[in-house]
């Protein structure tokens, strides 16, 4: 029984990281209908920026964190302005292709600046060490990622439900032209969406970097683990991203722990297939009514 709880807790923690990445993908899809393939590289860029602030400029931890997040925000704005703005109104697949090309370009740029080797943070980012409750241990790095994911979830849900900008974003997601006709600046919405998504991405990159170290070859591939989480929860749902991430994390670890760790890689996909067969838009996705 103790193991079951341990697996549950492991899954919850890891799910937090998946949830953060999934959140960033969903944010962009929700507003712009673009599936962002560059999420892994933006994640890594955020992690690298923090590392540079810590290792090259020797700034203390908290200001570096805030500064790095601000830079990530700016990078998101820049990406939207340069790479995605020209593609408004063009077929969606072209925009997706653009994110793909962007990810390759970013990878090259990161190799140029930071090289291909493995980089670790000079100091531990997440404060404290692991806690043990009863027989269950929670590692501090993952715990912080989980708490971050929860915090991001709460903030974003409030943002989309209650603030004017959030409502504008949801309106733009429905129909760009209708939104424009009511006076919403689609450009501003897109810019802010990408900026926010980059910020969330950078947070997940920093959490992962704290745990695993950062490397151009490996870190972007970690983002792949979040894809099933995104679809499980529904492509357009913020709660769905978090729930999807946690669900995938928990189920993965339960199956891996109780049945066979060999199955851990594909459990998310099998669960996904099963869910999609019964609920075609994911757990929390919007059901679209189609008309001819």
């Amino acid at each position: 029984m103790a193991e079951f709880t341990q697996y549950l807790m492991n899954g919850l923690m890891v799910g937090g990281v998946y949830g953060l990445i999934a959140l960033s993908i969903v944010l962009i899809y929700k507003s712009t209908r673009v599936f962002n393939f560059a999420v892994g590289d933006i994640m890594l860029l955020g992690g690298f920026v923090l590392w540079s602030l810590l290792a090259w400029l020797n700034l203390p931890l908290l200001p570096s964190l805030l500064f790095a997040l601000a830079i990530a925000f700016g990078i998101g704005l820049l990406i939207e302005r340069l790479a995605l703005r020209p593609l408004i109104g063009q077929p969606i697949l072209a925009a997706i292709m653009a994110t793909l090309a962007l990810s390759i370009f970013l990878k090259g740029a990161m190799i140029l600046i930071w090289g291909t080797g493995q980089i670790a943070y000079p100091t531990k980012i997440s404060p404290g060490t692991s806690m043990t409750l009863d027989t269950v241990t929670l590692s501090s790095g993952l715990l912080w990622a989980f708490l971050l994911a929860m915090a991001a979830f709460v903030v974003l849900v409030w943002f989309f439900q209650s603030t004017k900008m959030g409502l504008q974003m949801r309106a733009t997601a429905e129909d760009h032209q209708l939104a424009q006709s009511t006076g919403i600046s689609v450009k501003l919405v897109f810019g802010l969406t990408w900026a926010m998504a980059s910020l969330v991405c950078a947070l997940s990159g920093i959490s992962l970097g704290d745990r695993l170290g950062l490397s151009v070859g490996m870190t972007p591939l970690l983002a792949l683990k979040a894809f099933p989480a995104v679809f499980l929860g529904g492509l357009e749902s913020i709660p769905g991203a978090i729930v999807g991430g946690l669900a995938i994390g928990i189920l993965e670890n339960l199956v891996g722990g109780l049945i066979n760790p060999n199955l851990m890689e594909i459990t998310p996909y099998i669960i996904l297939l099963v869910i999609l067969l019964f609920r075609a838009e994911g757990l929390f996705g919007l059901k679209r009514i189609e008309r001819i």
């Binding site: 790479a83 072209a94 292709m97 653009a98 090309a101 370009f105 990878k107 090259g108 190799i111 140029l112």
Partner: peptide, 19 residues
């Protein structure tokens, strides 16, 4: 670094100019 940078840039420019 140059390889991926040029590749990504060329494809990106291409898509922007001819989606």
């Amino acid at each position: 670094a140059l390889g991926p940078m040029v590749f990504g840039l060329v494809v990106l420019l291409f898509i922007i100019l001819e989606p």
